[in-house]
Deep mutational scan, measured.
Amino acid sequence: TKVFYNGTYVEFNNPEKAKKYAEKVAKKVGGTFTEKNGQFHVE
């Protein structure tokens, strides 16, 4: 499961961990995250 952010991504074996990371990054940058095709995108 990949989490895309700012033109790069971090890959996780565990979708649950990926979601938590996406939430954390989104919170940090004051943005939101969306799930597309089983991957997370932070905006």
Rank of each mutant, 00 (worst) to 15 (best):
T1M: 06
T1S: 10
T1E: 02
T1V: 13
T1Y: 15
K2H: 05
K2N: 04
K2L: 09
K2F: 08
K2Q: 05
K2C: 15
K2I: 07
K2T: 05
K2V: 07
V3Y: 00
V3D: 01
V3G: 01
V3E: 02
V3P: 01
V3N: 02
V3W: 00
V3A: 01
F4N: 04
F4Y: 13
F4H: 08
F4I: 07
F4W: 15
F4E: 04
F4D: 03
Y5A: 04
Y5I: 10
Y5W: 12
Y5E: 04
Y5K: 00
Y5S: 02
N6S: 07
N6W: 06
N6C: 15
N6T: 03
N6Y: 09
N6R: 10
N6D: 11
N6I: 03
G7M: 05
G7K: 05
G7W: 05
G7V: 00
T8Q: 11
T8Y: 14
T8H: 13
T8K: 12
T8W: 14
Y9Q: 06
Y9T: 08
Y9C: 15
Y9S: 08
Y9F: 12
Y9E: 07
Y9N: 04
V10N: 04
V10D: 04
V10Q: 08
V10F: 09
E11G: 05
E11S: 12
E11H: 08
E11L: 08
E11D: 07
E11R: 07
E11A: 08
F12E: 01
F12Y: 04
F12N: 01
F12C: 13
F12K: 00
F12Q: 00
F12L: 04
F12P: 01
N13S: 14
N13H: 10
N13F: 10
N14K: 07
N14V: 07
N14H: 08
N14S: 14
N14D: 15
N14I: 06
N14T: 13
P15C: 14
P15N: 09
P15I: 13
P15K: 14
P15G: 07
P15M: 12
E16A: 11
E16H: 09
E16L: 09
K17Q: 15
K17H: 13
K17A: 15
K17N: 13
K17S: 14
K17I: 13
K17E: 15
K17C: 15
A18Y: 00
A18C: 08
A18L: 01
A18R: 00
A18M: 00
A18P: 00
A18W: 00
A18E: 03
K19F: 09
K19E: 08
K19A: 08
K19C: 12
K20E: 15
K20C: 15
K20N: 12
K20L: 12
K20I: 13
Y21Q: 04
Y21H: 10
Y21V: 05
Y21A: 05
A22I: 02
A22H: 00
A22S: 02
A22W: 03
A22F: 02
A22K: 00
A22Q: 01
E23A: 10
E23N: 06
E23W: 04
E23K: 09
E23R: 06
E23F: 04
E23T: 06
K24I: 13
K24Q: 14
K24Y: 15
K24H: 13
K24R: 10
K24S: 13
V25M: 14
V25R: 03
V25P: 00
V25S: 03
V25G: 00
V25N: 02
V25D: 00
V25E: 06
A26H: 01
A26F: 00
A26Q: 02
A26I: 04
A26W: 00
A26V: 05
A26L: 02
K27D: 08
K27L: 12
K27M: 12
K27G: 07
K27C: 14
K27R: 12
K28S: 13
K28D: 12
K28I: 14
K28N: 10
K28T: 12
K28L: 13
K28R: 14
K28M: 15
K28P: 00
K28H: 14
V29T: 11
V29H: 09
V29R: 05
V29D: 04
V29M: 11
V29N: 07
V29E: 06
G30V: 02
G30A: 06
G30M: 07
G30I: 03
G30C: 14
G30E: 06
G30H: 09
G30S: 06
G30D: 06
G30N: 11
G31F: 03
G31L: 07
G31R: 03
G31I: 02
T32Q: 09
T32P: 02
T32F: 14
T32C: 13
T32K: 12
F33R: 03
F33C: 13
F33Y: 12
F33D: 01
F33S: 07
T34F: 15
T34E: 09
T34S: 11
T34H: 13
E35K: 06
E35F: 08
E35N: 04
K36T: 09
K36C: 15
K36Q: 11
K36W: 09
K36E: 09
K36G: 06
K36I: 15
K36P: 01
K36L: 12
N37A: 07
N37R: 06
N37D: 14
N37P: 02
N37W: 06
N37M: 08
N37L: 09
N37Q: 08
G38L: 04
G38I: 00
G38H: 04
G38Y: 03
G38K: 05
G38T: 02
Q39K: 04
Q39A: 13
Q39T: 08
Q39S: 13
Q39W: 08
Q39L: 06
F40Q: 01
F40T: 01
F40I: 09
F40W: 13
F40S: 00
F40C: 02
H41S: 07
H41V: 13
H41K: 05
H41A: 06
H41M: 10
H41W: 15
H41L: 11
V42M: 03
V42F: 04
V42A: 01
V42I: 13
V42D: 01
V42C: 04
E43D: 10
E43H: 13
E43R: 10
E43N: 12
E43M: 13
E43F: 14
E43W: 13
E43P: 03
